[in-house]
């Protein structure tokens, strides 16, 4: 599905990612750990195609096609979708409108809204005065309408109460076609600090982003356990010793 080859990314003239290699196959869910400021959001923004996140080296392959130079909206149309850590407010543009505009293949907006308990937000300006949890729910509703085959989720559970995490987990599982076994193709990359979302969403592979690279892959739960025990210096004691 997605492959990053020696990806280098610069923000405001400073290189943040120094050569990231990562491969996510069809039907796989990957998790990205890493300390604050490591460059996790930067990586997702670069994959999505935000011009401010300048790719200065390496390449991004999506379903075998080199999309390194493809503009943002064309990547979205090819099936990449993202839920944002801090999306902007757009005054005058209603939440239901953004969901409608995101919708491909005529998916029902009511369904997405109901699934994420969004009814009361639909007629409000998108993200305007939304609580932390409301932002996450509105982001996921937009993705459910958009139906991407590859999802980038930037801390989908941070600031969300326990009941709503389960709601979000359900929506993420739908996006990732977790109810399908054989026919599943959709895949994703999820950033998490706490790992709470892993209680609801099955993840296949974990990665650690540190000092601008992604040095290793492993079992996500084990990695989380190591990080909790030893902090992000896990690399030093990592048994794989890569």
């Amino acid at each position: 599905m997605l492959e990053l080859k020696d990806l280098k990314v610069e923000v405001s003239g400073k290189e943040i990612l120094h050569g990231v290699n990562l491969k996510i196959n069809d039907a796989e869910t990957h998790v990205l750990f890493g300390p604050n400021g490591a460059g996790k959001t930067t990586l997702l923004m670069a994959i999505m195609g935000f011009p401010e996140y300048k790719i200065t080296g390496g390449s991004i392959l999506f379903n075998g096609e080199d999309i390194t130079d493809l503009p943002l909206h064309e990547r979205a149309r090819k099936g990449i979708g993202m839920s944002f850590q801090r999306p902007p407010t757009i005054k005058g543009v209603k939440t239901h409108q953004v969901i409608e505009l995101s919708a491909r293949n005529g998916i029902s907006i009511d369904e997405a809204a109901k699934e994420l308990n969004l009814g009361h937000l639909l007629n409000r300006d998108v993200n305007d005065g939304f609580s932390g949890g409301e932002i996450k729910r509105s982001e996921l509703a937009q993705l459910m309408a958009q139906q991407p085959s590859f999802v980038l989720l930037d801390e989908p559970e941070s600031g969300v109460d326990l009941e709503n995490i389960s709601l979000l987990g359900g929506a993420i599982n739908k996006l990732l076609q977790k109810d399908m076994k054989r026919q599943r193709v959709n895949s994703g990359l999820i950033i998490t600090h706490t790992g709470y979302i892993l209680d609801y969403v099955d993840a296949d592979v974990g990665h650690l982003l540190i000092e601008g690279i992604v040095p290793c892959a492993g079992n996500p739960r084990e990695m989380l356990h190591h990080i909790k025990e030893n902090g992000y210096e896990v690399c030093a004691i990592c048994p794989t010793n890569c």
Binding site: F50, P71, L72, H73, A76, F84, P88, I90, L101, Q146
Partner: peptide, 15 residues
Amino acid sequence: AKEEIEYLMARGLSE
């Protein structure tokens, strides 16, 4: 705001 334009572009809208 560029941020707002890009947010919608990430949902598949052209500029």
